[in-house]
């Protein structure tokens, strides 16, 4: 994933999940059935909204960090993909899990959340640890 695309998609993710906040507010204001009367669904949609928006911002920060720290290209593209997919999986996993929940637990899409969280975590750690020199071939003895 290119730097420009990552930045644009990250900001788009922030916009998407912020817009979702408007939707949740509207449902609250309209006392929408299936929202007001369903605490579990409400909780997981809120989790999706907040995590999606926050992880979108984390992606913006990672995009800046990758440029600033000169993360080598062999890592940078994959970090961007992992971080963005991670944010998407977490946000969408919470939302879809809440929409399909059972009596006490979210629905199967919730399984996307740990996978997304792991990708976000590994991407963030990689940005912190990978140095510009890590792209060079090992020096000959």
């Amino acid at each position: 994933m290119t730097a420009e695309r990552h930045l644009r998609l990250s900001i788009a993710a922030v916009a998407l999940f912020l817009a979702m906040g408007l939707w949740l507010e509207a449902m609250y204001g309209l006392r929408a059935e299936g929202w007001i009367d369903d605490p579990l669904r409400r909780e997981f949609l809120r989790l999706g909204h907040s995590h999606g928006a926050l992880l979108g911002l984390v992606n913006v920060a990672l995009a800046w960090g990758i440029e600033r720290l000169e993360t080598p290209a062999t890592w940078a593209g994959k970090i961007r993909l992992a971080a963005w997919l991670g944010a998407l999986f977490v946000g969408v996993g919470f939302v879809a899990g809440g929409l399909t929940h059972g009596p006490t637990d979210p629905g199967p899409p919730i399984l996307m959340v740990p996978a997304g969280a792991l990708m976000t975590l590994t991407a963030t750690v990689a940005v912190a640890l990978v140095r510009p020199t890590d792209a060079r071939p090992p020096a000959a003895d």
Partner: peptide
């Protein structure tokens, strides 16, 4: 290194 990066970044999730 490309393979290491892929394993590090996507391995745990997979």
């Amino acid at each position: 290194r490309p393979r290491l990066a892929a394993i590090w970044l996507f391995g745990p999730a997979l």
